[in-house]
Design a protein around this nucleic acid. Structure first.
Length: 112
DNA sequence: AAACTGACTTTGA
DNA sequence: CTCAAAGCCAGTT
């Protein structure tokens, strides 16, 4: 991949590290904060490239419906859910989270 | 170059 | 609430 592409991925990962524990962000949110509004799919691609032992909190990124964008039954999907619940995120109807409640809003006061 | 693909989003039925 | 369609960005065939 080109130098430029790599820089973009790093910028995306950088933004994700800013999401505090107990909060989540949508792919669109991450794209926007990384300076490329509308590039949600680009964010998904950057996440795929993450190495296994990464410290980037990729599990805090979910889709605009408040659902996990990983195949049902996959181990990664299970892990993402486990990690989120461990951080206090609650799933409604065993499917989606309440975005109004857990969505990360940069700049707001952290009451952890 | 054209078609296909996907860790996406929004809108409308 | 679930679905499909259309828009979206960009890598792979």
């Amino acid at each position: 991949m080109t130098e430029h592409e790599s820089d973009i991925n790093h910028r995306i990962w950088q933004v994700i590290t800013l999401i505090p524990s107990g909060k989540i962000a949508t792919y669109g949110d991450v794209a926007r904060h990384a300076g490329m509004p509308g590039a949600a799919r680009r964010v998904g691609r950057a996440l795929r490239l993450l190495p296994e032992g990464t410290r980037v909190p990729w599990h805090r990124v979910i889709n605009a419906q408040g659902r996990i964008s990983l195949p049902d039954g996959s181990s990664s999907q299970y892990i993402q859910r486990q990690r989120l619940e461990a951080e206090g995120i609650v799933f409604r109807g065993n499917k989606n989270v309440d975005l109004k409640r857990f969505r990360w809003r940069p700049g707001e006061i952290d009451k952890n």
